[in-house]
Amino acid sequence: MLKLSGISKIHQAGEVQTTALDRIDLDIDAGEYVAITGPSGCGKSTLLSILGLLDVPSKGEYWFEGQNVTGWSEAKLSALRRGRIGFIFQSFNLIEELSVFENVELALEYTAMPARERQAKVTAMLQKLGVQHRAGHRPSQLSGGQQQRVAIARALVAGPAVLLADEPTGNLDTAHGDEVMRLLRNINAEGTTVVMVTHSPAHAAQASRTLNLLDGRIMVDALRAA
């Protein structure tokens, strides 16, 4: 489903060159649950950006669902992202000026879906994640766990093929973190490909495959024993 071939990402700041990713080859099949680990600055977020079509590699090719998206314009990438990729962040990234309902609806706002259908999908997703009763509230009125569930609802409401999670439990306590991990397992069980960046070995162990990065290179690519 996702294929990276010889991907490198080099950042240039003045005369200083930094290699964030170094000749990455990676295949992720549909329905996989992949955890990416590594120390700070190893290239985890950069890898996630490229997988999420948010950043373009300096070298190599990226195939997304059979299409070579290397060299595509931002407009084309944006259109491809729409509804195909969901994102979950460590800091939730909910918009304070919008209600919970509107935050989730944001993911469908730029599709061609009619308003009524959009609202029905949002309502269903909020119910599924158990935050329907907070639909009219602002994000700051929710607990951390509830905010992350809303963020997950936003990531899933369009029915994405891939869910990218960047340290989804980083700002949560243990109980809420476990709850989020349980949600991710369920999402994956329903068929969504999940790629998660995490610092937690325990959470990484819940994935079916673990990639360990160091200095922009994949050092370990391990499948969890069934």
């Binding site: 407009a75 944006s78 992202r81 918009i95 000026e97 944001l106 706002e109 730029y110």
Partner: peptide
Amino acid sequence: RRSREIVLRKLHGASGGA
């Protein structure tokens, strides 16, 4: 003030015109 919101909207497919 709205930079985060703008970025998230672009993440979810908003075009420059939007």
